[in-house]
Amino acid sequence: MANKLIVAPAPHVQTAQSTARIMRDVVIALMPALVVSTIVFGVDVLRVTAISVAACVLFEFLIQKFLVRGSLTISNWSAVVTGVLLAFNLPASIPWWIVVIGAFVAIAIAKMTFGGLGKNPFNPALVGRVFLLIAYPVQMTDWPLPVNGAFDALSGATPLAAVKHGIAGPDALGVQNLLIGNMPGSLGEVATLALLLGFVYLLWRRVITWHIPVTILATMALFAFLVALCSGESGEMLWQLPLFHVLAGGAILGSVFMATDYSTSPMTVRGGVIFAVGIGVVTMLIRLWGAYPEGMSFAILMMNACVPLINKYVKPKRFGVVK
């Protein structure tokens, strides 16, 4: 025998999954939505995504190389995920320099200052988006119309904004347009069906479990249903409003890809459900009575802040312990 024997404590097998593979799977799961978005808004989508990804990776590389001397982690694809998610939260017409600023906030401030992957308390892409939304409100809400969507029913507002400001009713667009993304909006949020495809892929690859996304959407639907009921609606509106709120805006993108972010979500399934209910409720509160038409990003960030608390008090059910 040529080699020395290797000795290590048990177990002697490791999973085929790896951090890089998980992150790569998330990127793959986002690809259908990117394709749909490109069809809807044109090549600008690819431009914004490319700038965002490149800037995120570059900032992470520079910070690790020159500021926090340590091992480089850009090969684990996590910066790419942040880049794509940030781009998905922007309008296609956004100037390139705003994208770069958003990437800087996401990577440098929201991720690396806390110690990098796994230690950030807030979702980096969302911190980037919210920063831009507050710093550049005009550019961030200038939604281009779908290139081949031959309608201007909403006069350039997102469906959520249109409904909020009373321009149109929740049923104006129709479920079909909401599903295939024939509406104004940020890159990622228009392609509902494609995002759901990504969700299925992530479930199949065992990257995430269904608990958080399904709970968020169910909470939102229930909330909308109750609101419709209380405001005296009846008939079609009882299901139109919940369906609209689940399909429009960033609900699917946020619940599948952002709320399930590992380091900013609770460690237990029960904790995850509490977290998800919180997101659903806060989102609906902002959408219905807040200053902004969309509340998903704020809701996720707010619940991110509660995660350490949830982790402290919600422990897994211990084997053999009866309460």
């Binding site: 951090t19 982690t73 996590s78 990098g116 992957l117 796994g118 590992y262 897994p316 084997f319 053999g320």
Partner: peptide, 22 residues
């Protein structure tokens, strides 16, 4: 063993533990 990297808080260990530990 493959080279260890940092914990990404994926919670897979928590859901894999047959004794309900963390």
């Amino acid at each position: 063993r493959r080279e260890a990297s940092q914990c990404i808080k994926c919670a897979k260990c928590v859901s894999a533990c047959p004794m309900g530990l963390e």
